[in-house]
């Protein structure tokens, strides 16, 4: 039997080929993240590169036209804080010196521009205009002056893709600012994206956290630094009788309002010997070589 599109056999072959392509798409969907990541990375560094570079340029230009009075006000506030804490830091330095301790090991932060990704499938993510060449690594915390925004998930040479706190996979170990309650902070999706909140989950049942309490990162797991502001408790979400409670938190940072952030970067400090006052082991191979050369 013939139809206008060709023979039945041709149609069957056509359907089989289309089926094979569908299977290929399903395999792509089911691939583990470590196999999907190189595909995304290659697309970002080839097809999408000119578009991302254009947005980086626009973000840089936008940064140059910021209201100077706002920047001046922020600088003045910062100056006041630094001046007030000057004696404290000197005291801390002297005490560390007396105890023979080196400087605190803390990540270094680099200011970067946020590149907004308008693709539907990239919801709750953003790009930054710094990458592995700047020391950005997978897991780098991304902070703003108002608190935690998210963390880096994929890194290319000059750009990186990060998730914000609305992303379903965002988690951070947290505690109340007084340390009375601790748990894991995770996102809660609202009816509209503007209504998204955070929740402090798995807190001890006997501890009562009052609305208005500030929640900060606890530093556990060594992924996020300790004490970064996450948000303010607005009420109880759930009380699993006799076991644990969770609380809703109003986040300190709204992702849509952010244009500049700070991202943690590595500075290639692989040897921590100087931190613990350990001298480098003798280079026995060099000594042997020298001895052999002497003979």
């Amino acid at each position: 039997m013939l139809d206008f599109d060709g023979t039945r056999r041709t149609r069957r072959r056509d359907a089989a080929l289309a089926g094979a392509i569908l299977v290929l798409a399903l395999i792509l969907l089911g691939l583990p993240d470590e196999y999907q990541s190189p595909i995304r990375s290659s697309l970002r560094t080839t097809v999408l590169r000119p578009f991302l570079a254009a947005q980086a340029q626009i973000a840089q230009r936008r940064g140059q036209t910021e209201d100077v009075t706002v920047v001046r006000a922020q600088r003045d506030s910062l100056l006041a804080i630094v001046a007030a804490q000057a004696s404290l830091s000197e005291e801390n330095r002297q005490l560390r010196s007396a105890l023979g301790l080196s400087d605190r090991i803390a990540p270094t932060y680099k200011p970067v521009n946020v590149l907004r990704v308008g693709l539907t499938s990239a919801e709750s993510t953003f790009m930054i205009d710094a990458g592995s060449a700047d020391g950005v690594f997978v897991g780098s915390p991304v902070l703003t002056a108002e608190g935690m925004l998210g963390m880096v998930r994929e890194v290319d040479e000059t750009t990186a893709q990060a998730i914000d706190w609305t992303h379903p996979e965002f988690r951070v170990s947290a505690m109340t600012s007084d340390g009375a309650a601790g748990g894991i902070v995770e996102p809660r999706r609202g009816a509209f994206r503007e209504e998204d909140l955070l929740a402090l989950t798995s807190t001890a049942f006997q501890v009562d956290v009052r609305p208005g309490t500030r929640v900060v990162s606890s530093g556990r797991g060594n992924l996020f630094p300790r004490g970064v502001f996450l948000g303010t408790v607005i009420g109880i979400e759930e009380a699993d009788t006799g076991w644990r409670k969770s609380y809703l938190i109003r986040p300190g940072v709204r992702p849509e309002a952010v244009s500049h952030v700070m991202v943690a970067v590595r500075e290639g400090r692989a040897d921590l010997g100087d931190v613990f006052n350990v001298t480098a082991p003798p280079d026995t191979m060099a000594a042997d070589t020298a001895a052999a050369g002497g003979d």
């Binding site: 392509i21 969907l29 995304r40 697309l43 990704v117 499938s121 990239a122 893709q161």
Partner: peptide, 23 residues
Amino acid sequence: LVLGILADSLALVGFGATSVAFV
């Protein structure tokens, strides 16, 4: 499939879902 991969190029979750939909 090709358009779907392009549309999903920045998807950290559900990578490939658009490819399936477009196919």
